[in-house]
Simulated scan of single mutants.
Amino acid sequence: MTEKVHGRGTVYNPLVTDELLKQVNPENIQLKKDFLSYLRSIDRAKTTLESYSYDLDYFFCWNLLHNNNKFFVDMNKREFSRFQDFGLNENGWSASRVRRVKSTLSSLSNYIYNICDDIYDSYKPIVRRIESPVNEPVREKTVLSDERVNYLLDTLVEKKKYRVACAVALAVFSGSRKSELTRFKVDYFKDENIIFDAMFKTPEKIRTKGRGAKTGKQLYKYTLIDFKKYFDLWMTEREEKGIKCEYLLVTKDADDNWVQAQVSTLDSYAEICSRILGEPFYFHCLRHQLCSRLCKYNLPPKIIQEYFGWSSQDLISVYDDNEAVDDFGKYFSADGIQQQDEKTLADLK
């Protein structure tokens, strides 16, 4: 079967069952528990632990069915290679997924070597020595032009879907990740938080992606002033509905109360946007779109890096979807090479 993920397909094969897990080698079950306990002790994110847990359950169920339920510590490279072949060629996994699951197994292998060396003193971390399949993109990448983004926002406003328009606009003008969008509060968009007459700056740091289950990476977030139009429309609707929640994006809980939106709330918005655009939409494409737009406006790399809160300017090339040839007209003409001045964020108004 195929599980749809907001316009993009993921191959999903339910090998793991409760019945099979009950039959898994008890030594492997205990090893998994100890490994996850160790990861919690070094403050790995909950989502990381959940991903590792599922990957290991899958591997141990395969090991039960196809490898005599062997203890992980006793496995050899040929057996790990067979599992890799199973995932890639029998289950139809992408190379990217195979590499991700292999990374989990490698982390467990390293844990045994580095932490359990007093028990398994002759163990060698062999998983990392197995060659991985070539990683090639298998999902369609959605690249939205400025015109398509404006069309999406205009259509949402026309349909009076102000809540969705506000969420999309926040992503468009802040470049925040989907999970970060749910953490913005209404008070962040007071006039007193406008800087340089060009953007809002959050009065407090927001937890973003990064090492640490409790804190992550704390950053001030910026949102271009263009967002205010969509913010005002949503605030008017919030007032009409009597919504008092401090968080900007909200949903209703089981008791019909308005509470902070979840990632799943944004996922439902993505489905609405996909139908409007007639192509796969996912919020992360707007992070690419903003970076591409800032690059197109000749903002200095240092400014773009600071706006997104990146630790390195190398990420600009990852998120910039502009083709170099598209910009040739800025710099080359019949009169020779043309000099272009760098701009600031205020020039985007």
Results as ranks from 00 to 15, higher is better:
259 V>L: 08
16 V>H: 07
268 S>K: 14
102 K>E: 03
32 K>D: 02
283 F>H: 11
25 N>V: 05
169 A>D: 05
179 S>V: 10
193 N>G: 05
345 L>K: 10
135 N>L: 02
96 S>D: 01
172 V>K: 06
101 V>D: 09
192 E>L: 12
264 S>G: 02
83 F>G: 11
212 G>T: 01
122 S>N: 13
251 T>E: 14
74 D>P: 00
319 Y>P: 02
30 Q>C: 04
55 D>A: 13
310 W>V: 10
268 S>A: 01
42 I>R: 15
183 R>E: 15
281 F>C: 00
120 Y>H: 13
287 R>C: 07
179 S>F: 05
301 P>T: 06
181 L>C: 11
344 T>S: 15
289 Q>Y: 11
212 G>C: 02
143 V>S: 00
179 S>R: 09
309 G>T: 08
17 T>D: 06
298 N>W: 09
160 K>E: 15
237 E>H: 12
206 I>K: 09
256 D>Y: 06
160 K>H: 07
136 E>S: 14
36 L>C: 04
238 R>N: 04
129 R>L: 15
102 K>F: 14
7 G>E: 05
162 Y>E: 09
299 L>C: 02
86 F>W: 10
120 Y>A: 07
118 D>L: 03
80 F>N: 09
4 K>F: 13
195 I>S: 00
154 D>R: 14
276 I>E: 00
74 D>S: 12
331 Y>F: 15
304 I>T: 11
22 K>S: 04
31 L>R: 02
212 G>L: 05
88 L>D: 00
185 K>M: 12
182 T>E: 06
4 K>D: 13
38 Y>G: 04
7 G>S: 09
98 V>S: 03
78 R>Q: 08
286 L>Q: 00
57 D>L: 08
220 Y>P: 02
254 A>H: 08
142 T>A: 06
237 E>Q: 15
4 K>T: 09
23 Q>E: 15
331 Y>T: 12
23 Q>V: 10
235 M>H: 04
231 F>N: 02
111 Y>A: 00
89 N>A: 09
335 D>C: 12
228 K>Q: 12
347 D>G: 01
188 Y>L: 03
217 K>M: 08
344 T>I: 03
154 D>L: 06
270 A>L: 11
8 R>F: 08
261 A>L: 02
28 N>R: 00
347 D>V: 02
54 Y>E: 07
168 V>Y: 03
300 P>D: 10
13 N>C: 10
66 H>R: 11
114 N>A: 05
31 L>A: 10
292 S>F: 03
12 Y>A: 07
117 D>K: 13
113 Y>R: 04
186 V>S: 05
268 S>W: 03
132 S>K: 13
172 V>M: 06
293 R>G: 08
331 Y>H: 02
214 K>I: 07
231 F>P: 02
242 G>W: 07
60 F>D: 05
325 V>W: 08
85 D>Y: 14
282 Y>G: 01
133 P>E: 04
71 F>N: 05
204 E>T: 14
158 E>N: 13
337 I>N: 03
261 A>Y: 13
188 Y>A: 03
227 F>A: 04
206 I>Q: 09
212 G>W: 03
194 I>K: 00
70 K>T: 11
35 F>Q: 10
243 I>F: 01
18 D>L: 03
267 D>L: 02
290 L>Y: 01
233 L>V: 08
